[in-house]
């Protein structure tokens, strides 16, 4: 890949807005989110429940279910020289179907719910490979070829006895094996972008360590770009090279992982990092907390969404929404402490 391709984003989300029109009112789940994913980069997206991280990913794959709708913004995805705006593509059209699962793959949180219990895991992966067969070359793949590819993938993701396990049903596999099979399925079409949505939240800590190590190895081997979504700051610190911090549908701060953890600029990032019990700090003392609770989705605060809980709140925070701007050469933050620019209304 030439130098220009390495510095142009693979995926570029610009001012994305997704809202859900419910009977009780409009929920603005994603409210002006922007970020880029570079080729081969591991981008960590961190945030608490309701911050819109999962909805953003569903929007990228055009999987937002009704009554949800992408209301504005762009999702620019670079494929073989051309740039397509995924937000404008019909969700069931041929281009989107080709991209979804083929060029952009998803590792869901709960592999038990993601696999069908009435087909073997092998059958489900073989089906995906045959559907996106052209990604494995010009030659038309036979079922046998697809099965061989699947066995190879199972070996790659560290499943022992791969040729037998291909014929297992998802409920016959343990949590760790099931998540490995899910990773094999996500990789089956050689995606250029992998979206991992809380891939280790449902599994135990020793299995999590195995799965994280596996994802790191596979990323190094295939140089796939990964968007890694989690609420676990430890997982983000270990996996991501660049971090996006979200709160109530907006990006609060983004930057390289070391800066986010060691010189966070946004009060929300700072408070979030302080509030987690560490493995080395003093025990049995009060932890610094973020006051208040996450607001109800129908009850979004005006101005900066974090202002009611912010220790550094100023008068203008409740009146205007700060835009996401560079605050250091490498970091961006949306906070009036660091710049005066409000979001253009």
């Amino acid at each position: 890949m030439d130098a220009a391709a390495e510095t142009t984003p693979l995926l570029s989300v610009r001012d994305l807005r997704v809202s859900f029109a419910l009977d009780e009112g409009l929920v603005r789940a994603v409210d002006g989110t922007s970020f880029d994913v570079m080729p081969g980069q591991v981008l960590g997206v961190v945030g608490e429940s309701g911050c819109g991280k999962s909805v953003t990913m569903r929007a990228i794959l055009q999987l937002v279910e009704r009554p949800g709708r992408i209301t504005s913004g762009e999702i620019r995805f670079r494929r073989d020289g051309e740039i397509v705006d995924l937000a404008r593509l019909p969700p069931r059209g041929p281009v989107m179907r080709d991209i979804r699962g083929g060029e952009i793959a998803l590792i869901p949180q709960e592999p038990m719910a993601a696999f069908s219990p009435v087909h073997t895991v092998g059958e489900q992966i073989i089906e995906a490979i045959l559907l996106h067969g052209h990604r494995w070359g010009e030659k038309k793949l036979s079922r046998k070829d697809a099965r061989d590819i699947t066995v190879g993938l199972f070996r790659d993701v560290g499943i022992s006895m791969p040729s037998q396990r291909v014929d297992a049903y998802s409920w016959q596999l343990s949590g760790g094996l099931r998540q490995r099979a899910m990773i094999a399925m996500a990789l089956s079409c050689k995606p250029r972008l992998l979206i991992a949505d809380e891939p280790t939240t449902a599994i135990d800590v020793t299995t999590q360590a195995q799965v994280l190590a596996l994802l790191r190895d596979l990323q190094a081997k295939y140089n796939t770009a990964i968007i890694f979504i989690t609420h676990d700051l430890g997982v983000i610190a270990q996996m991501a090279s660049y971090v996006v911090v979200m709160y109530l549908g907006r990006v609060m701060e983004q930057g390289p992982v070391d800066e986010i953890f060691h010189t966070p600029k946004h009060p929300y990032t700072q408070a979030l990092l302080r509030s987690i019990p560490s493995m080395t700090g003093t025990t049995r003392v009060a932890l610094p907390v973020i006051s208040g609770a996450l607001p109800h989705p129908f009850n979004r605060p005006a101005g900066c969404p974090f202002h009611p809980r912010c220790p550094d709140v100023m008068e203008r925070c409740s009146k205007a929404v700060p835009s996401l701007r560079p605050v250091t050469p490498t970091q961006l933050a949306s906070c009036f402490l660091h710049h005066d620019q409000a979001e253009p209304s």
Partner: peptide, 25 residues
């Protein structure tokens, strides 16, 4: 010891390197 090593430290400067527990419960 293995359980403690498996917890990912919330600091990118501290890396979990070796001693990942293999196998399953």
């Amino acid at each position: 010891a293995a359980l403690m090593r498996a917890v990912p430290p919330a600091d990118p400067r501290v890396r979990i390197t070796d001693g990942i527990l293999g196998g399953e419960v």
